[in-house]
Amino acid sequence: MRRLEEVLKSGKFAVTAECGPPKGADPEAILKKAELLKDKVDAINVTDNQTAIVRMSSMAACALLKQNGFDPVLQMVVRDRNRIALQSDVLGAAALGIENILCLSGDHQSFGNQPQAVGVFDLDSIQFVQVVREMRDNEVILGGDALSKPPKVFIGAAANPFGDPLGFRVVRLAKKVAAGADFIQTQCIYNLERFKKWMEMARERNLTEKVYILGGVTPLKSAKMAKYMKYKVAGMDIPDAVLARLEGVPSKKQAEEGIKMCVETIQGLKEIPGVSGVHIMAIEWEAKVAEIVERAGLGPRPTKGK
């Protein structure tokens, strides 16, 4: 049994982290990053051409991690593949032993370095979740053709409690759950109050009983980064107070303050009923994940599996 599913099912507070594959064919690059997370997290998300910038394929990177004893979460976006490619990749991933798939829409192609690319968006993320669930549980692909061997994967989906409109965010969560999501990783949380509200609404719908929700966090390196995320990155909600707190310390100490705030957020998350874990997206700052995990009192991780 895969590590992430196991941790979650055992009721322990899960920890996942994110790892971006290299802009090159070097297998060492991804392994080096993963090495920093070894035993600090339960599973490692590998992003799929994040922000629409071309990188090593997520599937290949996941395969490398798997071979080296990690439990990877394969992120798949519907932006670049139609339903044929998506389904075949799901089968391929399962064949390579990849056990977690996170189904995403993906950042719009216009943001990346290939803005002329066609956006496929044949399926949307919810439909994709449903398709994978059908493949796994009913052993059929879209249209009903049977599979010789179903992909036994743990299905994840994303949620952004900070997107608008708030009311519909939970509906969308419910739809993802209904479609078959086993776990949810959320957008980075800086506005804990809003997150709590969202969780409350999720609990009202009994969603927390049906799905494991991992709150997303990203440590801020500096006030500058915070500003950039606040104003330039879609779907981010960084309250003014957060920005002010970072700006309140000298720039040299801002990184430290960012980590401190991240730790506080994780501690806050632990208090919220229905939150099953944390997903740490330390963007190109994987080295600090260990420290965050430690300081948040989440280490050491239960050892199991390989």
């Binding site: 719009h108 956006g119 439909q127 949620a159 779907g235």
Partner: peptide
């Protein structure tokens, strides 16, 4: 993104 099941996180 031609989404049929609700807004993406970027809304």
């Amino acid at each position: 993104k031609q989404l049929l099941n609700g807004p993406c996180g970027g809304s």
